[in-house]
Computed example of a mutant assay.
Amino acid sequence: MFNAFEKIFTVKESETAEAVGSGGLPVLSTPHMIAYMENTAMTLMSSELNENDTSVGMEIHVQHLAPTALNKTVSVQAKQVDKSGKVFTYEIEAYVDEELIGKATHKRAIVDKEKFMAKIKP
């Protein structure tokens, strides 16, 4: 049986579409909704890691279905649906007051921190 996890976020002014430039309205931006989703999956996945590892997002397919006002509480639920070697797949849903505002399929991979960072060219 795969794991599931829920995390709660509150929409800040700095996370609105207007503030980040992804739109012109003071509502939760799509980039921040995606960040909430990735953070929830990352937290769920953390129990699978040893001290030398971390996880990185490698793919996300997302639908942003409804607007969310400033200061609203967003509940993000991630459920692991597959594991293939070091790649984990999650189904994620975001809700505000029981209304589905977004959903995604997200893949994360386990990587060795030092080896991963060594790939960065100065």
Rank of each mutant, 00 (worst) to 15 (best):
E59Y: 01
I101L: 09
N39W: 07
M1I: 12
I34P: 06
D82C: 01
D53Q: 15
T73Y: 02
T10V: 15
P122T: 02
I120D: 04
F2R: 04
G85I: 05
T68K: 04
L28I: 09
A66D: 09
I60L: 08
M1T: 14
M42C: 04
K107A: 00
G102S: 04
A69F: 06
G85S: 07
A118D: 11
I60R: 02
N39L: 12
I34A: 08
Y95N: 04
E59L: 01
T73F: 02
K79S: 13
Q63C: 00
L44D: 08
A104N: 04
A66Y: 03
K86G: 07
F9W: 11
T89P: 00
N71G: 11
M37Y: 02
L65N: 04
N39H: 12
N52V: 11
N39S: 15
A41F: 06
T43E: 14
P67Q: 13
I110W: 05
I101P: 03
D97H: 05
I8S: 14
A69D: 12
E15N: 12
F88W: 01
G85T: 07
Y36P: 08
F5H: 12
A118K: 11
E59A: 09
V81F: 05
K12E: 15
T54P: 00
V20L: 08
K119T: 14
L100F: 01
T10D: 09
P122F: 01
D97C: 01
F9Q: 10
L70S: 14
I92V: 15
V62N: 09
A17C: 14
V81K: 09
P31F: 05
H64E: 03
E59C: 01
G57A: 00
K79F: 06
T40P: 05
A78T: 06
E13H: 11
H61T: 14
F5M: 09
E98V: 03
V56W: 00
D82S: 12
L49I: 11
V56A: 04
S46V: 09
E59K: 06
S46N: 13
V76E: 03
M117P: 02
N50R: 09
L100M: 10
L100N: 10
N3T: 15
E59N: 11
D82L: 03
A41E: 09
H32P: 03
K83F: 00
M45Q: 05
G57W: 00
L100W: 02
V87N: 01
S46I: 08
S55W: 00
K7H: 07
L49C: 13
T105M: 03
I92R: 04
K107F: 00
D97M: 04
L65Q: 05
S84V: 13
T68C: 13
T16H: 09
T30I: 09
M37R: 04
Q63L: 01
E18C: 11
E114N: 10
P31A: 05
M58K: 01
E93L: 05
E15R: 12
F88C: 00
